[in-house]
Amino acid sequence: MKVANKIETAHSPAEIPNDWFTWKETDKEAAEVVSRPSLSYWQDAWKRLVKNKLAMAGLVFLVLLTIMAIFGPIISPYTVDKTNLPNQFQPPSGDHWFGTDSLGRDVFTRTWFGARISLFVGLMAALIDFTIGIIYGGISGYKGGRADNIMMRIIEILYGLPYLLVVILLLVVLGPSLGTIILALTVTGWVGMARIVRGQVLQIKNYEFVLASRSFGTKTSRIIRKNLIPNTMGPIIVQMTLTVPSAIFAEAFLSFLGLGIQSPHASWGMMANDALGAILSGHWWTLFFPAFFISFTMFAFNVLGDGLQDALDPKLRK
């Protein structure tokens, strides 16, 4: 206040002569210099994911697990179903790294076979959910109106179905096998994905860039493919990483109930079930290895999903 008064008494604005001012050259180029490399959305997300140590540990674990799932049974001198009764319940040793089970089968070989089954079931379930969910949710969200209304009612009905009960029922009818397990898991499993895609599409389709695209006369299918789907990818990928562990859990759960992969093949749930009696007599390794790998695979997918959630959220971008 004081200062303002002083200036006013000194000079009224009109009295300030023009030669008090000098023209300062602005460097227009300098203002436009980009100080750090421009990052695409995916590069930025990756950078942030790498910083998340727990998520990276999960990723590394999953990569190693995949490698072992592919090569483990190949490098092992034993086969998955070769029984060797005199050799039952061997503790872990140089011959049998993870020991042998009640039928003398090599737990090492069976564990990696189980990894194949679990990863395959998990990834297939996620992929099928993704495909159906993105088509169904995309159409429902983009069309809106009556079509959306009807499609959402169908989803509401399916959503009310108790997931594992339906899966159990389907497997009792269809008979347990790898194909039927994946089918049963995806029959109602895609509903969650469809809901997420729809919610995202509903939100994004009203943004200006979609409007701009439409005003250029872009076809609907192209808008869905080029504008909507790439921008909904974040939550969809997170949902996929979380579908995998729940499918792996479901497979293990079903195998545990005797509705999963059938002997002589191996799955982690089945191995845990077989080990139930054995651990009471102290043969801990028959349970430990499948239990460890089920838990850590689910753990790895969960922390990776959490990490991706943070990394892919544009609101958290610095």
Binding site: A272, A291, S295
Partner: peptide, 9 residues
Amino acid sequence: SIPNFVLAT
């Protein structure tokens, strides 16, 4: 991450 049947055993 730990399935309930594993925890139980």
